[in-house]
Each structure stands twice: as structure tokens, then as C-alpha cells.
Design a protein around this nucleic acid. Structure first.
Lengths: 91, 91
DNA sequence: ACCTTATATCGATGACTGTCAATATGTTAG
DNA sequence: CTAACATATTGACAGTCATCGATATAAGGT
């Protein structure tokens, strides 16, 4: 658990992006669906997505014209912890 | 779970400070014990402690000449999650 | 081949951050 | 009261960051 992991989610836009990506039932989101709801420029959204990818929290896959993002499988637990907050404790 | 919470732990020095404070059996640490092990100036340590206090993750109590810090009781779960990483899942 | 669309990259800029030396504040001891 | 000590605050500086407009890259359609 390094400070760099938290740095990646220490920005409101990135946290929201991660939340959006993690919350879709399909498990992946097209970048085209992420530009509008954040009220930031396309360049800014692209930048933040790239930060999340470089941090290893999400993965990017080019499919045709579109780029699809999903939570990195090996970081799903970290992402869930970050988004849900309180861990569920074993009794 | 706001980005500000993660911002507070997104610095290596602060993460280490939080870890030191959270890991002492007594539950509280004197600032005098935090200056040395981080290899930063006294002013820098004081600054980071104040950031953690303002974020509500630790509390500060003046006792005589010394300042004592402990993990804020109402944020103990967040701190544990941050430091331990994986949450323990209920079966 | 061209045009359109989707996304990334570049360059610039203003804001924020970590750091330290110096100084201030507050506390205890003599 | 004064000296010594612990911690906080101030001021300055260099580095990082979020943001955007403009441009580049790449893919698909016509």
C-alpha cells in the first residue's frame, strides 16, 4: 500500500472516473461516455484516464474507434476498498 | 469517501507518520518521537502532522511541553483500511 | 484519397505542494 | 525572570499538477 496508489485517487475527477468505471454492470466503459459527465475538457479526461492506467488501477483497450476502460482485475479489491470505504469485518 | 481523504495520505511522509502513529501499542505518539525517523526537518514533520490533523485522520493533544498524536477514533476504520490494504471480507 | 470521429499528445499557465531556515509561541525548570 | 526546550508558523523557492486550446494520430466510413 504505497502513497502513489492514493495519489492516483486523490483527485476528485479521477475518483469520479474510477467510480463510474467500477459501477457499470458491463464492467467496462467507453471513453466517449466519460467525457460528458465530468464537465472537463476531453484533453483533461484523457489525461486523468492515462494517470489511472499508469497507476495500474484501470486497463485500456482500443476497440475500433473507441477506447474501453475497466478496473484492472488485480486491483479490483483496492478499488472496491477505495470506493466503498469501510471494509466489511469478519466477526 | 472523498478525494480529500486520499490526498491526506497521498504523501510518503504522511503515510509513514500515520503508520507510525497507528502502530504503537500505547495508541499515541509524542511528536518528539516522529521527528527523527523520517529524515525531514522538524518544520516539515510539524507541517505534515498538521495536514493529517486538519484532514481529521489524527488528533493532537498538548500535554506539557509535548504534543501527542493519535488516530482519530472515528476514522480508525479508514486508517486501518488505508494501512492494511485489503479489507477482511465477511464470508 | 478524403472527411469525420475518437482519443492522445503538446505547450502553456496558474495553482498547489513539499521542503527548509529562521523566527515565533508556549511550556517547564532553575 | 530567564534560560532551555518542544513545537508551530512564516517566508521563500523549486517542483509538481490540473486544466485547456490546439494539434497530432488513428480508425472508419464514403
Amino acid at each position: 500500500m504505497l502513497a502513489g496508489d492514493f495519489k492516483a485517487v486523490a483527485d476528485p475527477v479521477r475518483l469520479r472516473l474510477l467510480s463510474l468505471i467500477a459501477s457499470v454492470p458491463e464492467g467496462e466503459v467507453c471513453a466517449c461516455d466519460l467525457n460528458e459527465p465530468l464537465s472537463r475538457s476531453q484533453a483533461t479526461i484523457s489525461h486523468h484516464l492515462s494517470v489511472l492506467v499508469k497507476a495500474g488501477l484501470i486497463t485500456r483497450e482500443q476497440r475500433g474507434k473507441w477506447a474501453w476502460f475497466q478496473v484492472a482485475p488485480d486491483r479490483a479489491d483496492f478499488v472496491r476498498t477505495v470506493l466503498v470505504g469501510q471494509p466489511v469485518l469478519a466477526p
